[in-house]
Nucleic acid binder design. Structure first.
Lengths: 286, 286
DNA sequence: TCGGATTATGCAATCGATTGCAGAATAGTC
DNA sequence: GACTATTCTGCAATCGATTGCATAATCCGA
């Protein structure tokens, strides 16, 4: 891309050994070098516009200062804030995030993670957990560092950070019960994700516990389209009456809105809809 | 992270020189090697689970197969689709995107781009253009490859990909004129971005041309909050009556919604609001 | 003033892959 | 059968920074 200034360039002009330049520029090792020399080298490095080559450094130190972040789909509004959070933590610590989208496809995910590892990432943050993840177990055995986020992956021994899905669904139902609803629909997310399972499971349990009439509708993805399609199909079959929808996430809730509208149902007059995640702009939707 | 298999490991087991392994595994150079040898080496490499070290390769070949993508703010819904587009183009070509958020801060941006260059990115995609960008001119002189996207940066000699902002604003006004509106507000984005300037400029021109009454309100950012704040301040001063708002983008339009509502104004009964960008979910908002 | 401790710097190997060059081995030609 | 052309593979330098080891220079105390 351009003729970059290297340690050797600085060394030559300063009349010292590249090793000395390296030690002078690194705060950890600068005390091994004469203060005056450090000052001189720093000055020359600055004048020449020297910037370290992170790639070369990484090769020698076996650290890339890069973390791979595996996201199912960046256009799902809950993920950008997560990515930004990761990024803003890493940046001041000298790290960068390498973000990839798996599209919820397991094969793609494998390709992506392999490409991340070829790029020598120091660790992974994985937001695409799904059931019985052999691939992740394998990585774990090979000593790959990783943290799961948002979704868990049962049987995978990585640390995991998730919300309390069960408590969320309970709270949603509790709220709807207070409003007097008796007949419920749960628009459940794709069944291979832990979040879907927990939410659907809690929904069943709570309906039983509270003596409510609850029905689960499965969707194929956490997206508006999937929610709308599933709901359309359901409504087309003239189902038993219901007045409340607990959607598996906010996008499914939005899909439900669309479907209700096209079926002449009004929200909240006819049906109450509650989402999940409180994604950005969630309260601006209709 | 783990004991990776290197070219040398494969070479030792195959009983050949690492150079031969390198040539065997690279489709470009495999014809320099005996077919039988290639087959054997390929087999061994596969058995050992060899994966190339992209970092080491990049050092030697002076290519990182990485493109830096500079975004103002990933949580602005227009950017994730852009990032995904970039990513899905790069992936099958062996490249990765290194995505950073500048937060619209010029100093941050400089730090970020420098960090991208230290990571030896092969080129940049920059979505943060702002007026008179000395930094970018400097990069251009130093031979840095880049493409501007979404916003342009006047005076910067990089190729640029943008929408036709002027035509968009004209179309918006045309539509509102057809609805019979006479008195317009333009909620303009921050004045250091080219998109804001062009949109505001076109708004003025068109109002003049069509004999409309048009007023421009400036905001400090392309965000809901900035739009709401600016609109609140405007409405608090009991302005001359108006019936149409042309917002600088969809987030500002959303902010306008909020503000109108808190001021007892109804959309579309009292005021029509039109956004810009057609960001994801734009037609689901209220 | 001498010897040991300390400081400062150079040397060279290393990380893992690529590649120009050279030479060995084989094939092909007359 | 001798000689050139071709094919294949090894050697070693290289990319840029880091770092263990060695050595030269300086310092300090007795």
């Amino acid at each position: 891309m351009r003729n970059r200034v290297t340690l050797a360039d600085v060394a030559k002009i300063a009349g010292v050994n590249p090793g000395t330049v390296s030690r002078s520029l690194n705060p950890q090792t600068e005390n091994q070098v004469n203060k005056e020399t450090v000052r001189k080298i720093r000055k020359i490095a600055k004048e020449l516009g020297y910037t370290p080559n992170t790639v070369a450094r990484g090769l020698r130190t076996r650290k890339s200062l890069t973390i791979g972040v595996v996201i199912p789909d960046l256009t799902n509004p809950i993920f950008p804030p997560l990515v930004r959070g990761v990024d803003s933590y890493l940046l001041p610590r000298g790290y960068s995030a390498l973000i990839v989208n798996s599209d919820g496809n397991v094969d793609t995910e494998l390709v992506l993670i392999n490409s991340l590892m070829e790029r020598q990432v120091d660790g992974l943050i994985i937001a695409t957990g799904h059931g019985g993840d052999e691939m992740l177990k394998d990585f774990h055995n090979r000593g790959v560092y990783a943290v799961m986020v948002n979704r868990e992956s049962p049987g995978v021994p990585y640390p995991t950070v998730t919300g309390d899905d069960g408590a969320g669904i309970s709270a949603a139902i509790e709220h709807l019960v207070a409003l007097g609803h008796k007949n419920y629909i749960h628009l459940a997310g794709p069944s291979d994700s832990s979040t879907s399972k927990i939410r659907a499971h809690t929904f069943s349990i709570e309906c039983k516990r509270l003596g409510l009439n609850g029905k689960i509708i499965k969707t194929t993805a956490y997206s508006i389209e999937a929610g709308q399609t599933a709901m359309d199909k359901f409504l087309d079959h003239k189902p038993a009456p219901f007045t409340a929808i607990v959607a598996g996430n906010d996008l499914l809730a939005l899909g439900a809105y669309h479907s209700l509208r096209t079926h002449g149902l009004n929200c909240p007059a006819d049906v109450s809809v509650i989402g999940f995640n409180n994604m950005p702009f969630a309260n601006d939707f209709q």
